Amino acid sequence: MTTTHLAAVGTALPGDPVDNSALAATFGVNAEWVEAFIGTRTRHFARDLTTGEIRHSLADLCAAAAGQAMERCGAEPTDIEFLILGTATPDHLMPTTAAQVADLVGLDQLPAYQLQSGCAGAVQALDLARHLIGSGEYRTGLVLGGDVCTKHLDLRRDMTAAAPSDLVNCVLFGDGAGAAVVTAEPYGEAVALLRTLSRCTGLGREPGQIIDWFGLADRDTERQALTEDYKAIEESVPVLAVEILWELLDDLGWPPESLDFLLPPQLSGRMTRLISDRLAVPGAQEISCVDRTGNNGNALPFLQLDDLLPKMGRGQRALAIAVESSKWIKSGFALEKA
């Protein structure tokens, strides 16, 4: 099987960082509570909190990230042979955001796949890309992940009396996108994508998170579009993260002390710290970003990679973990610098 390499990564975050004081002014939440309970200091929104104006679509952000990744490794649109996007929040049901991004980037006459998934979607996209490159049929592709979560925020709602489970959705999430140029030959950053893991483990379990599409039949419903069982997420994600870590290490035959970098799940600043402690790989440098970017779903692995790649030296190893709580999907990937 041909080895897949990451040649370059690009990212896009909309607008200026929004701090907890700005959230407090908009939703009536307590800024100190956000800092202590969530542990996220800033996030980026594609929507103006004052006017409600949508300033960036998911396609806009993905195209910007893709353009940056391609520029960084010198890839031209004619070099790209496939495009894969992982997202939980596409701009439309149809056309796919993947097809819209292809148009914005100047790509045509190529497969454009869209994977509907939450936090595991970016890893699923990398997994599919690894198999496409590994088949020998393709040499260069573009993998993207991103989410625009603020479409689910009701800016008119007074949250001063809301339960903590409702408040979480106002302060946890952010918007953003990321992209990677993947290749068969090692060039650019020349980081080998050695393993990818993607496995649904939700048999018989209730979803930890639900995001609804509201059609004409229920457009006047009072149901929230986004609901989650935050307690179940807090209890389950650290356990699943440890399982992913050891499954990837065992599969690769890597002892934990051989890891140079660890990319833990990016739920929130507070939860990421707890998970990192649970993973207990003291010799590995942690690469985290959620405390400054917010939880922007499928953008997060690319944001972590953007921080990681300049730090990696020849022969160094990194392992990334992502857990999707919607129906409990375990995912992760392993990298080694060529």
Score class of each variant (00 low, 15 high):
residue 55 R to N: 08
residue 140 T to N: 05
residue 158 D to N: 13
residue 150 T to V: 12
residue 240 L to N: 00
residue 113 Y to Q: 10
residue 10 G to Q: 09
residue 140 T to R: 14
residue 253 G to R: 13
residue 334 A to I: 08
residue 66 A to I: 03
residue 179 A to W: 08
residue 153 L to F: 12
residue 253 G to K: 13
residue 165 S to L: 05
residue 310 P to G: 11
residue 84 I to K: 11
residue 21 S to V: 15
residue 17 P to K: 10
residue 28 G to L: 12
residue 42 T to R: 13
residue 148 V to S: 01
residue 233 I to M: 12
residue 45 F to G: 04
residue 22 A to L: 12
residue 17 P to Y: 14
residue 71 E to D: 11
residue 31 A to H: 02
residue 120 A to G: 08
residue 156 R to P: 02
residue 299 A to S: 15
residue 280 A to F: 00
residue 126 L to H: 01
residue 101 V to T: 13
residue 326 S to Y: 07
residue 192 A to R: 02
residue 299 A to E: 14
residue 262 L to A: 01
residue 78 T to F: 09
residue 42 T to A: 14
residue 14 P to L: 08
residue 83 L to F: 08
residue 172 L to N: 01
residue 205 R to H: 13
residue 330 K to V: 02
residue 145 G to F: 02
residue 82 F to D: 13
residue 179 A to Y: 03
residue 114 Q to M: 10
residue 84 I to H: 11
residue 237 V to Y: 04
residue 27 F to M: 00
residue 249 L to P: 00
residue 126 L to M: 11
residue 92 H to A: 01
residue 289 C to N: 08
residue 39 G to T: 03
residue 327 K to H: 13
residue 280 A to E: 06
residue 23 L to M: 09
residue 26 T to Q: 01
residue 134 G to Q: 03
residue 175 D to G: 13
residue 168 V to I: 15
residue 146 G to A: 06
residue 50 T to F: 14
residue 263 L to F: 06
residue 310 P to S: 09
residue 13 L to M: 12
residue 256 P to A: 10
residue 196 T to F: 03
residue 184 A to L: 06
residue 116 Q to L: 07
residue 211 I to E: 09
residue 229 D to K: 11
residue 188 G to I: 12
residue 36 A to V: 15
residue 186 P to D: 04
residue 54 I to S: 05
residue 323 V to E: 05
residue 92 H to V: 01
residue 43 R to P: 04
residue 167 L to A: 09
residue 129 A to H: 02
residue 254 W to I: 06
residue 247 E to C: 04
residue 290 V to G: 06
residue 333 F to H: 05
residue 236 S to A: 15
residue 14 P to S: 05
residue 66 A to R: 04
residue 206 E to I: 08
residue 137 E to H: 08
residue 26 T to N: 03
residue 118 G to I: 00
residue 97 T to F: 02
residue 317 R to F: 13
residue 295 N to L: 08
residue 134 G to E: 01
residue 192 A to N: 09
residue 132 L to Q: 02
residue 246 W to S: 09
residue 113 Y to N: 14
residue 121 G to S: 02
residue 62 C to I: 04
residue 326 S to V: 04
residue 30 N to W: 03
residue 90 P to T: 11
residue 282 P to T: 01
residue 80 I to A: 10
residue 279 L to I: 04
residue 250 D to P: 04
residue 338 A to G: 10
residue 38 I to P: 02
residue 232 A to K: 09
residue 176 G to M: 10
residue 33 W to V: 06
residue 179 A to T: 10
residue 212 D to Q: 07
residue 255 P to W: 07
residue 338 A to S: 12
residue 298 N to F: 07
residue 128 L to R: 15
residue 263 L to R: 07
residue 44 H to M: 09
